[in-house]
């Protein structure tokens, strides 16, 4: 459903993506692994239109969306849960959700209210805190809010940039349960994750990004067999 073709994205003279090609299948959970600074966030921001690629193309449902404004891309059906959550700190939880539905100009107010209700059912903690400022929530709650805000756009493809970063193991477990639930409900997911063990439990396909290039592309089975990945991400072979 999403095809990234030979994308080059640069900050000034430094190319963070040096020709990335990958695809995300409909109804799948696709996982992007890679060390810090590999360009994972840059790829997410390029897909969502925040950054303009210098070269290459991004296609979604066979439509070219390269270089479109972020608003057009979210309306096309791609939403991003950004790295570090980025909730609106001095807006209430409810207002954050409403901001998430900003792009849905065609939806009636009642429809958006229904979706907010659905979010509160999925994330009961958010209902309790609905009138609280988002900045006062715990890290885990902010992550839930960030996911809920992205879902308010009713995306067909949900991008998640390191949703488990800096969260306690129990919360991480919860986040991955949400990923499973969303997938079961029919949302395709493109997940950036450093926690390969957790990712192995949910993902259908893996990519490894290193220094702006895709260096591995395969199924969970192939990944678990790959020596380089084993050493770097699964820690199964100890070297002194």
């Amino acid at each position: 459903m999403l095809e990234v073709q030979d994308v080059v994205t640069a900050y000034g003279k430094i190319e963070a993506l040096k020709g990335v090609t990958l695809r995300v299948g409909e109804g799948q959970i696709t996982c992007l692994l890679g060390p810090n600074g590999a360009g994972k966030t840059t790829l997410m921001l390029t897909i969502t239109g925040i950054l303009k690629p210098r070269r290459g193309s991004v296609r979604f449902h066979d439509k070219d969306i390269t270089g479109q404004a972020p608003g057009g891309i979210v309306r096309a059906g791609i939403a991003l849960v950004p790295e570090n959550r980025l909730v609106f700190p001095e807006m209430t939880v409810a207002e954050n959700l409403r901001a998430g539905a900003y792009s849905r100009t065609g939806s009636a107010a009642s429809e958006i209210a229904n979706d907010m209700e659905a979010m509160y059912n999925r994330f009961p903690r958010l209902r309790e805190r609905s009138t609280q400022m988002a900045g006062t929530l715990s890290g885990g709650e902010q992550q839930m809010l960030s996911v809920a805000r992205a879902l308010m756009a009713r995306p067909k493809l949900l991008l998640m940039d390191e949703p488990s970063l800096g969260l306690a193991p129990m919360i991480v477990e919860e986040i991955f349960q949400i990923v499973r639930d969303l997938h079961k409900d029919g949302t395709s997911i493109f997940l950036v994750e450093q926690n390969a063990h957790m990712a192995l439990q949910v993902a259908h396909h893996f990519y490894l990004l290193e220094q702006g290039r895709v260096t591995f592309d395969g199924t969970p089975g192939e990944m678990a067999e790959d020596e380089v990945i084993q050493r770097a991400y699964l820690g199964t072979r100890q070297t002194a």
């Binding site: 969502t48 239109g49 925040i50 972020p70 608003g71 979210v74 309306r75 939403a79 991003l80 950004p82 980025l86 909730v87 609106f88 700190p89 001095e90 807006m91 207002e95 901001a99 998430g100 900003y102 792009s103 805000r149 992205a150 756009a153």
Partner: peptide, 14 residues
């Protein structure tokens, strides 16, 4: 307010 508080997230909301 969204743009004032968190411009990148605001863009992501469209």
């Amino acid at each position: 307010r969204a743009v004032a508080q968190q411009p990148m997230a605001a863009q992501l909301c469209g």
